[in-house]
């Protein structure tokens, strides 16, 4: 009895792993297909425009508000710590570095995954459940080219712009708290920032990070939608999976990219 339970557990784990690898393979093939079929949607750019509107413009409010508040919190906390060492003039540098290098891309990515990624998955999943994708396929219009690819590219284009806005608003939030409310010197706030934030090392790397996150989230979102079981339950499960998998992917990729970019 005991032994049976144990074998069942290991059997379950084994099946889970095999299933995960199988899905990963399918996801990779799907990405290949998606890129192969992207030509037509990039030529008809208004399809992508629509998706930039849905995943980018509609995520704007949450990104801007979150960015502002994260910057303000960084301002308060940073000041509390730095003032102990008498180096509150480095507040600007601290706020900007933490935003541009880490918090901007990562938090914007997480917000993007839960705001836009889940919406993309749900939309594609529902189109599949209501036979819209089948109908399109029967009309000799490839649903991957017509439905999936524009959403993918819309996400890929939106994400770095959103992350940049998040960081910029965060810096402003830090400025509001540090300079306007607490009253550190605005001159040293900006000059310390400029002296310490390097264009190539910090800003370009931050943009690269956010672009990678955008790719990852969009890929997960369209794949989960396309692969969703065509039922209400299947779509809801796929949506949850999108948020979980893309959040984990962002954090994992962030670790890899950070150790590649900022070591030594």
């Amino acid at each position: 009895m005991m032994l049976e339970g144990i074998t069942a557990v290991f059997g379950g784990i084994g099946r889970g792993v095999v299933d995960a690898v199988w899905r990963l393979g399918f996801a990779a093939r799907f990405l290949g297909m998606l890129l192969w079929l992207s030509g037509s949607c990039l030529r008809r750019f208004n399809l992508v425009m629509r998706e930039i509107y849905f995943s980018g413009v509609l995520s704007l409010i949450i990104i801007l508000v979150s960015g502002l508040f994260v910057g303000m919190v960084l301002g308060i906390q940073g000041y509390e710590i730095l003032v102990r060492y008498g180096s509150e003039s480095a507040l600007g540098a601290m706020v900007a570095l933490s935003l541009v290098r880490e918090l901007g891309p990562v938090l914007a990515g997480l917000l993007f995954a839960s705001r836009a990624g889940s919406a993309i998955t749900a939309e594609i999943g529902l189109m599949k459940a209501t036979e819209q994708l089948d109908a399109m396929d029967m009309m000799a219009v490839d649903p991957i080219a017509r439905v999936v690819a524009p959403r993918f590219w819309g996400g890929v284009i939106s994400m770095p712009l959103l992350a940049a806005m998040f960081s910029a608003l965060g810096v402003l939030g830090g400025y509001i708290v540090g300079v306007v409310m607490i009253g550190t010197d605005p001159g040293s706030f900006w000059s310390q920032m400029q002296a310490n934030v390097d264009f190539r090392q910090d800003i370009v790397n931050g943009v690269i990070k956010s672009a990678v996150f955008g790719l990852a989230v969009s890929w997960v979102a369209v794949f989960e939608g396309y692969d969703a079981e065509p039922t209400a339950e299947g779509v809801s499960r796929a949506t949850t999976r999108t948020v979980v998998i893309s959040s984990l992917a962002i954090l994992g990729l962030d670790f890899i990219l950070t150790s590649l970019m900022f070591r030594g």
Binding site: L126, M127, T130, E131, A135, M138, M139, A140
Partner: peptide
């Protein structure tokens, strides 16, 4: 070839499958 052929046929789905967007 299948896509070329499908341009000449048409399937009406059970519940219409209109594009909701």
């Amino acid at each position: 070839e299948l896509y070329t052929l499908r341009r000449r046929m048409s399937l009406l789905f059970q519940f219409g499958a209109l594009f909701t967007d």
